[in-house]
Amino acid sequence: MKEIELYEPRIVAFFCHWCSYGAADLAGVSRMEYPASFRAVRIPCTGRMSPKFILHALRQGADGIWVSGCHPGDCHYGTGNYHSRRRLELLKNMLDYIGIEEGRIHFSWISSAEAEKFQQMAIRVVEAVRGLGPNTRLVKSVCSNCIPPVPTCDTMHECYEPLEEIPGAPRPNGSCCGGNGL
């Protein structure tokens, strides 16, 4: 039980610029306490939400997803959230169907005035994901699934030993390699 309490999930939250993002701000300046387990990504409108974003977050190791936007009828652009509502309803059904646990993916409508709802929702999302533990489904791993003769391993350090540095090999350099060290 203790371990579960200690486990901090990584949640990617997509907030609409015009409402839920503001609600997060308001909750902050109002000194409301809420868990810090999610990374907020500001999107212009929930209509911008693509299923790809959700799958990409899971793929990169997110344990949970939370998408929040304006109440139906209140979209800054008129109909963005109406469209995303259909898309996300269907996507959630599909992800349920293939076995992504119910509590990993959350959607909500939170206006910029609803700091309290934001706080409650944040607690609810984090608790649900924490209860499920780390996500293993649809996660891309560049280390497992090695194909023989390269042995399978959980962390690279277990099954590999470093060679000495290759003489003359280029150093990671932000200017020429996009800074990703390749």
Binding site: Y160, E161, L182
Partner: peptide, 14 residues
């Protein structure tokens, strides 16, 4: 990759 450069890792002999 690390602070001291990139190293290629050698698989343990399978």
């Amino acid at each position: 990759t690390g602070e001291d450069g990139t190293s290629v890792l050698k698989p343990i002999e399978p």
